[in-house]
């Protein structure tokens, strides 16, 4: 069953089409990744799904109902975790969750238990009487999530929920997303962290210039990239390495140096046999090679190939 279906969705600001005839479907039980560079139309799409922005053309269906005609139904069944923190600093964690959940029609003991449940789910039960101003960035992010899930929505939209937090909180949030999914919520997840999307999402859509340019499972997306190979070479020291010389080798598209791990990652055209030349150049630069491995394309490579941009640099 399709939980969400976007049909030829278009949003224009003047002559500029932020979203241009975008179509995609999200099935029940999926964690659907939405990838796109800044300005690709990701947030505009999310805002239209959450009824924050009217579309110029096209339709959005939530569980078979057109949301423009069933706004209350749609809003009741969607939980939005905005990219920016959307909580009240002058209210305690419990009051924040209680207030927002109350707007969804929950009352009395049900409202209280759901608010407690959401706080427990995000690991904030011990901090329920504390004010967000005393919270760490990670705790605020978790409260941001708690406010969106207390009413148990069918569809949860998470717009970059792990921005600017410590690894421990990030891990907590990622586990929470998985648990929410296991509990029956369908999730739309956007992130600049490709490894998160790769780890969590069952299906992914890549959006560029307001259009879907690829959609499928991560394996399906990776299979698109057949003309590119990536070689990782570990060296004893990167001192004296001449990147420009490597870039001059036939077929080499990109060279990335990780000084900390002392690794050189070289992206090259698949059909060009240039591994010997790469190794030769590294030896000429005085590098002591420790290991060479040919890497499978990952989502980052897919994204780069399809959009011509790195997700984090965009």
């Amino acid at each position: 069953m399709n939980v969400l279906e976007l049909k030829e969705l278009t949003k224009k600001f003047g002559d500029f089409a932020a979203v241009d005839r975008l179509s995609l479907t999200v099935k029940e039980g999926e964690i659907f990744g939405l990838l796109g560079a800044n300005g690709a139309g990701k947030s505009t799409t999310i805002n239209m799904i959450a009824s924050l922005l009217p579309s110029t053309k096209g339709e959005i269906e939530l569980m078979g109902r057109i949301i423009a005609k069933n706004a209350k139904f749609a809003k009741t069944n969607i939980g939005l975790v905005p990219q920016e923190l959307a909580i009240y600093e002058e209210m305690t964690a419990y009051e924040n969750v209680h207030f927002f959940a109350g707007l969804y029609g929950l009352r009395g003991s049900l409202l209280k238990s759901r608010a407690e449940e959401a706080l427990a789910f995000t690991g904030l039960q011990d901090k329920k009487r504390s004010y967000p101003r005393d919270f760490s960035g990670g705790m605020k992010r978790r409260l941001n999530i708690a406010c969106a899930i207390a009413h148990r929505p069918k569809l949860i939209i998470m717009d970059e929920p792990t921005v600017g937090i410590d690894p421990q909180s990030r891990r907590y949030i990622l586990n929470s997303v998985r648990k929410l999914n296991e509990m029956g919520s369908t999730i739309i997840y956007t992130s600049h962290y490709m490894e998160e999307v790769e780890e969590l999402c069952t299906r992914i859509a890549i959006i560029d210039h307001g259009k879907t340019i690829a959609e499928g499972t991560k394996e399906q997306l990776k299979s698109i990239i057949t003309d590119r190979k990536t070689v990782g070479i570990s060296v004893r020291s990167t001192e004296g390495l001449q990147i420009d010389k490597l870039l001059e080798i036939a077929g080499v598209r990109e060279v990335e140096l990780d000084e900390e791990r002392r690794t050189v990652t070289i992206a090259s055209d698949a059909e060009v046999n240039n591994l010997n030349r790469m190794i030769q150049q590294l030896l000429e630069d005085g590098m002591e090679i420790r290991a060479v491995d040919e890497r499978q394309p990952n989502l980052e490579t897919v994204f780069l190939t399809l959009t011509g941009r790195s997700l984090r640099d965009s």
């Binding site: 706004a71 809003k75 905005p82 909580i87 009240y88 707007l103 969804y104």
Partner: peptide
């Protein structure tokens, strides 16, 4: 400013 406007408008209010 606090971004709560979007959360309020995303709720059935």
């Amino acid at each position: 400013i606090r971004n709560t406007a979007s959360r309020l408008l995303a709720s059935p209010v």
